[in-house]
Design a protein around this nucleic acid. Sequence first.
DNA 1: CCGATACGCATTTTT
DNA 2: TGCGTATCGG
Length: 790
Amino acid sequence: MSINYKTELNESQFQAVTYDQGPSLVIAGAGSGKTRVLTYKIAYLLENGYQPWSILALTFTNKAAREMKERIAKQVGTERARYLWMGTFHSIFSRILRAEATYIGFTSQFTIYDATDSKSMIRSIIKEMGLDEKTYKPGTVQSRISNAKNHLITPTGYAASREAYESDMAVRMPAIRDIYNRYWERCRQSNAMDFDDLLVYTYLLFRDFPEVLARYSEQFRYVLVDEYQDTNYAQHSIVLQLTKESQKVCVVGDDAQSIYSFRGANIDNILYFTKVYPNTQVFKLEQNYRSTQTIVRAANSLIEKNERQIRKEVFSEKEKGEPIGVFQAYSDVEEGEIVANKIAELRRKNGYEYADFAILYRTNAQSRIFEEALRKRTMPYKIYGGLSFYQRKEIKDAIAYFRLVVNPNDEEAFKRIINYPARGIGATTIGKITSAANDNEVSLWTVLCEPLKYGVNIAKSTHTKLQDFRMLVESFITDLSGKNAYELGTNIIRRTGIINDICSDNSPENLSRKENIEELVNGMNDFCALRLEEGNPNILLSDFLSEISLLTDEESGQTDDDAKVTLMTVHSAKGLEFKNVFVVGMEENLFPSSMAGDSPRAMEEERRLFYVAITRAEEHCFLSYAKTRFRYGKMEFGSPSRFLRDIDTHYLSLPHEERINRSVNERADHFRREIEGGFIRSTPPQLSSPSSYSTFQKSKDKEQIISPSLPRHLKRIPTTENENQPPVSSTPSTSHRNVRIGQIIEHERFGVGEVIKVDGIGDNAKATIHFKNAGNKQLLLRFARFKVIE
DNA sequence: CCGATACGCATTTTT
DNA sequence: TGCGTATCGG
């Protein structure tokens, strides 16, 4: 299976793939085959003497890592692909940190705090310090601390930084450095790291232990980074630590799509990459394979208005395509109707599926209007961006138990479940334990085990309750290495009374909680089963935990068979493509967001965001704005976004009576005068109501919000058998004893594949199967779930 | 210890 | 407007 790089890639892709003399920067315009370059480059390296484990490929999302891995597996085979170090920054670094935990004073079982955990810990610290919560808002403090960490500033560095102090003074929060310091220590005490810590500690590990750095930088002979425009200073610095010596680094990205600065991403990393690695070879991928010429040119004319960027000339050789349609609506409601009508029209005229449409907005709050418009016309849709599965209360509760069992020092988990289900341990007791723990610089769990030793003054009955709790948790700890994740997990859910609590009555919300818990349990079963199939027994609870703590992954939009219109924010649309895209709410103070204020940098980022929105479209793109809109319960007036004027009118089809380029300012002024004069305020603006509005029958909504659930790779495709899946260990699958080479089978997870090899007999029989979509896999026949189809 | 009510607040969210 | 948190009363 050899790859013909010359014919399968265009010239610039080919150059980028085959260059391995030194550092390279690949500027990949929207839709220019960025992932293609990355996967081919890795395949190329593998063909040219690099071992899989000597290649490190970093991405930002699990999804990107998974997709890339699958594509590489198809090119070079699953066996070699599986030894690649490919994953998100956070997952790769957590893997390294678990292995080297003792260097930095953690154990390899450390917990990873999500944003909620860390916010909650910050909140308690603020309270304990007696600071005013109105001034010290946990969210604000958290983001300032996060910002410090993203810049690799430790509490010591922070305390010594005059700049940090002055900045804190300016917002009247001089105590932030103390909060930061305490927060840092408390996390250590809890054997826990937040997301940012995974980067900070990796950096510190490499900085303070050169022998460790040497080990890893010698192992990773080539480092590749995807979406480099989204890296923050910490990530950039770690990549530099690893590659400073070898200079074997290839970063891929598009500065025009840098839209995550609010999370610490620094566009300068990509803009000044060539300064950091002076011998960088730059490759530009400028051919767009996704969109019509009109869409590409319109997008170019927009992004041209940004100062800070790497100049490039993206072009398309697809058909010219139609101009970008601009719609004006009188109200947000009418905007919804216009979009729904247009979808209906395009479906009628061009035969599009619902799945060919996406409605993209700047803020999640805008989704409701479109939901209602689509529902009125019984058009199916799906909305992205709710709470992820792991954010749900009942799931967090269950997982808090898992966490405490794996790492008893986990303070947040402790607080969450010490009195859930209710066991008579109230706020007072927890307060006493917390302060004793702080005074003695030990964890809450340590105090709980010996309250008297740490001078906790409690009643006898409370003492008994605490010890009962301790024994309960300890009994699970005993089983940690003896039972697999699924067995121990179900055990915990049953014996702690979680199940009881949820089944106490049949209220609808309890029913849904129950379903969620069931899904979690099934997920754990599948998690173990999948690994067992691959010949990996003894999957422990800690394995499950460390896998899921870095997943936000929602049931991703792969379900292309169900035809639904997609509704999402522009941010979440990055990386996706749709035949028809509506970018809605194109108004001043909305898109661009009012938060951008007068900061040129922020405004440029808003413009890039708009660039991302437009470049999602393959065939048609539409922009719309409303003159009035309900916000925060009030009617607001808006004027068309300045970005509409950034696009060359040549590529636009403007509403008849509007000629934006000429009259936007005038009209905005006119509007303002009307408002300021109180002319309009007294009479609420007429909501236009097109004929279609009221004549449509209300119909029962068949649409559903996509409720994010277990990540796909933990999940088994539902079987026809009912939900009572027996535990893994007792499910020898029937009748696959004698598969033969050449047979076609269908696996529940991997899909259709052909048996190409069978080794061993009886319980140890192992088949190598070539899956159409998942490449080659070795499966233990004893556990594999599939059926023979031919 | 839970429920009702009040208050305040409000982009975007890869991990 | 509408949600999440804070506080008080039974």
